[in-house]
Design a protein around this nucleic acid. Structure first.
Length: 430
RNA sequence: GUGGACGUAGCUCAGCUGGUAGAGUCCCGGAUUGUGAUUCCGGCUGUCGCGGGUUCGAAUCCCGUCGUCCACCCCA
């Protein structure tokens, strides 16, 4: 195969065999978001590069080395969105939605990051992004998390658990960051190369290190929780009380930090042990400072992003994915007169039995071939029209899902007869 | 960006220490001149990822490159 016919690295096709799980997730989560009062909005896939630099943070990995950035023919620097929150915040500002805002919004679609692909990580991947804007209290945080818990329940996905932390205000975090730097600088000799590099840029990331050699050192480090400002402490305590009241179980991980700079106070992550190294399935948190930072009226907000490919994998493992639905009837036609007539019959059946699925044999083939296709289509009934039947003004019908002989019925009675036979075969549509 | 494993038919794979490719499956036809399983018979498809090197000779050895998978990093 010529190289130019390959898909771009890390950008995958979703084939019919896998689309059932995607549609299942989209239906269930779409319904759930409606139940919780969230409304869909759609924002562009491309934004000004500046938006992401100012929101995600100029010195994050995403902005420094993972964005698809290009100059358009007008000379503007544009970027394929690496995440959706920034675009939603921008949309709320530029459409004047913020005055006294109480917005509950969601969007879904492709995101782009130039990373090395691996299990659960792709260069074009898909997210649901859910945002509550204009709600300051911990009650939204709790409700958003409850929404997640209900989603796993409705999907029949069990291997996920919730991890929770509070980052405090940016001032509190800066203070903590200083303390962390002092601590790790004192033990610099014990650090690995990666961590030494993070020491200046982002010492919080050292806490996330998977290097077992650093475990003891990290456990001895100052804990973010001890540096929380009083208001954040109360916010977090209230959230925990609400989650306890809702029966949502969680563990607190004081070392949970997010890779995007705009988070403050509540951060959470639903993680799974069934996905390999990329275990975060859905994560988010509060970003009270983002909107004012982007030039909008100061508005608190909280939200999460859910990785569709990763959840689809969990659905696949749980075996709760929707199977593709076979047609109810497969129409077999043989003969110069019968073929055009069969096309008409198929249309008549589609008119009379909407939603049932009537598949017409296309492209000819022997009777044997057509029957094999009928069988493999998974259809409940084969409808047979040859010139012999046509001469008698009849059609033959044969159940395919059990051993049974075929019967004939007069052409005008066909729709009623098919409906009756589908009932007798206890064939369920939907 | 770094490391490891792997690229052979549409799909799953075999091919030992170099002698220019094979099985299963799928698809098509027939046995059954109009009936889906199974069985039997027959048929179709390969620039052995790509480029270069070593050799009389390379799917096999070497180098490069592209891609896939997994991990690091990072994150959904």
């Amino acid at each position: 195969m010529s190289p130019q016919l390959q898909a771009v690295r890390g950008m995958n096709d979703v084939l019919p065999a896998e689309i059932g799980a995607w549609q299942h997730l989209e239906r269930v989560l779409g319904g759930l978001l409606h139940d919780y009062g969230y409304e869909e909005l759609r924002v562009p896939v491309v934004e000004h590069t500046e938006l992401f630099k100012r929101s995600i943070g100029e010195y994050t990995d995403i902005v420094e080395k993972e964005m698809y950035t290009f100059e358009d023919s007008g000379g503007d620097s544009l970027t394929l969105r690496p995440e959706a929150t920034a675009g939603i915040a921008r949309a709320a500002i530029s459409n004047g939605l913020l005055r006294g805002a109480r917005l509950k919004l969601w969007t879904a679609g492709p995101m782009f990051r130039h990373e090395r692909p691996q299990a659960g990580r792709f260069r074009q991947f898909h997210q649901f992004s859910v945002e509550a804007i204009g709600f300051p209290g911990p009650d939204v945080d709790a409700e958003l998390i409850a929404l997640g818990a209900r989603l796993w329940q409705r999907l029949g996905v069990t291997r996920v658990r919730l991890v929770l932390n509070s980052l405090g205000t940016s001032a509190a975090r800066a203070q903590y960051r200083g303390a962390l730097q002092t601590y790790f600088q004192a033990h610099e000799a014990a650090l690995d190369a990666d961590s030494r590099r993070r020491l200046q840029g982002n010492p919080l990331r050292i806490l996330d290190s998977k290097n077992p050699a650093l475990r003891a050192l990290i456990e001895g480090a100052p804990v973010l929780t001890d540096y929380l400002d009083e208001e954040s402490r109360q916010h977090f305590a209230a959230l925990r009380t609400m989650l306890d009241g809702l029966g949502v179980t969680y563990t607190i991980n004081p070392r949970l930090v997010r890779g995007l700079d705009y988070y403050s106070r509540t951060v959470f992550e639903w993680i799974s042990d069934a996905l390999g190294a990329q275990d975060a399935v859905c994560s988010g948190g509060r970003y009270d400072g983002l909107i004012s930072q982007l030039g909008g009226e100061a508005t608190p907000a909280v939200g999460f992003a859910l990785g569709i490919e990763r959840v689809v994998e969990l659905i696949r493992q749980a075996g709760t994915a929707g199977q593709s639905r076979p047609p109810a009837v497969y129409v077999i036609a043989n003969g110069a007169l019968a073929e055009p007539r069969a096309l008409q019959l198929a249309e008549q059946l589609r008119e009379a039995l909407p939603g049932q699925g009537v598949q017409m044999n296309l492209g000819g083939g022997s009777f044997k071939t057509q029957f094999r296709r009928a069988d493999r289509s998974g259809a409940c009934l084969a409808l047979i029209l040859g010139d012999a039947e046509l001469d008698r003004g009849m059609v033959a019908l044969k159940p395919l899902r059990r051993e049974a002989g075929q019967s004939e019925c007069p052409l005008p009675d066909l729709p009623a007869r098919v409906q009756k036979m589908l009932q007798e075969e206890s064939w369920t549509s939907t």
